[in-house]
Design a protein around this nucleic acid. Structure first.
Lengths: 225, 225
DNA sequence: CGGGTAATTGACCCGGGTCAACAGCAGTGG
DNA sequence: CCACTGCTGTTGACCCGGGTCAATTACCCG
């Protein structure tokens, strides 16, 4: 698919570095190759909100090229490898192959669907449900991308990050994770997450995977945003 | 722009009726003509979250046709007039005119940008800021669509709706609106909103309009989602 | 005037925030 | 090998923004 173009400009950044900042003009479409990143916004007084996680295989802004400037930043969580695909190259690929156009379009829509689910998550779920839901989403997306190992996966996100993603504080994330552990729903230690009973976790988070639209996208592995 | 195609199938629904429900297959792209609608999700136990407001001029799902089924519902808030544009017709228009393709694409992206801002709003702002921010957004969007009259506009949303949009309860929305009134930031009575000092309201809501991307879209009037 | 929806108010409570200390652990340099 | 540093995770005490419950009061419309 995009793999060919992706070989061109592979970049690498250190953890906690930004790929691009709010206010800048988007340079290119980025394909995540290895490591985790996130989109986030920061309020004037420093409050931070993570808007989505970018996992290997995800495409950053399928056609952000239409918008004049970024309304949020993208930061690396781990050391990160990604491929920058220049605007004109994307245009060319779209023109050449309807399949690619469709895949990119699908990726945009899937990202938007995830954003909508997050709105519901932040607006109407308790801390416990919210974390359960987020962990479900990440686990399912990773599994769909072939990045899980049985019932476990790498999980490089700090509790502070989880707080910024769920609209909670780090302290309360800590306590709520303990609750989830106590209830046997997760095993999260040292950058590694295990989910012994995914269905139970889904129930706890009122998780319905339909919003991920995991059928109908690119055939092989084309996780959402 | 889309106006020509829009004349074809104009529909009308009563307030509080759904245009389409979660789980259904999207039938067509809808162009809002008159009245307000919203996207929303409902959790199993009835908790409801509004995901976005659809104002006249907005397009519902520029190319939802790619996704197999709706992951949320769309409901009318007021009596609503809208135009249904069939899938194949949209395809044809896109093929015929790159300008239309671009406009639709832009509309999608703008909607996604708004969704991201809502995530930050729900996650990191207080009730007071959150309401101020939402009112700012709606007022600015309405004004951009030529739907304001000086510093005021129609505002058919109930406090219950505002609660579902901001992740609060109706009771607390009521109290917070009173605070906003007391501070002279808004005048909201009988389905009508006035904003005597928009800049002050923006400050109160930590509102930065950049995420609306109001420049660069369709030339005339092309509000977001 | 009656019925229904939306707005408002009061009393009380709790989920989650705040503040502050402390523990674990990896990396780093001597 | 160990002390030092910095980040992340953990815990406790206390507090407050916002939720809950329930009653009233406007409106609107026929």
């Amino acid at each position: 698919m995009l793999d060919r173009a992706a070989r061109k400009a592979v970049r690498e950044v250190e953890p906690r570095r930004d790929l691009i900042r709010e206010g800048e003009r988007p340079r290119a479409v980025n394909l995540m190759l290895d490591g985790w990143a996130c989109r986030y916004k920061q309020l004037a007084d420093g409050r931070r909100q993570i808007l989505s996680f970018l996992l290997p295989g995800d495409v950053s802004d399928a056609n952000a090229l239409i918008l004049a400037e970024m309304d949020h930043s993208i930061g690396a969580i781990t050391r990160l490898r990604y491929a920058e695909i220049a605007a004109d190259e994307v245009e060319a690929m779209i023109a050449r192959s309807p399949a690619i156009a469709r895949a990119l379009s699908w990726s945009e829509l899937a990202a938007a669907a995830i954003a909508r689910e997050w709105i519901a998550n932040l607006g109407r779920r308790t801390a416990y449900e919210r974390l359960a839901h987020l962990l479900c989403e990440l686990f399912v997306r990773l599994r769909h991308g072939g990045l899980t190992d049985g019932d476990s996966c790498d999980f490089p996100v700090t509790q502070g990050d989880l707080a910024d993603a769920t609209g909670l504080t780090a302290v309360h994330v800590n306590r709520t994770l303990q609750d989830l552990r106590r209830d046997g729903l997760i095993d999260l230690r040292g950058r590694r997450l295990a989910v012994p009973d995914l269905d139970a976790l889904k129930r706890a988070g009122l998780f319905k995977g339909n919003y991920l639209h995991l059928t109908g996208g690119a055939a092989d592995r084309a996780p959402a945003d």
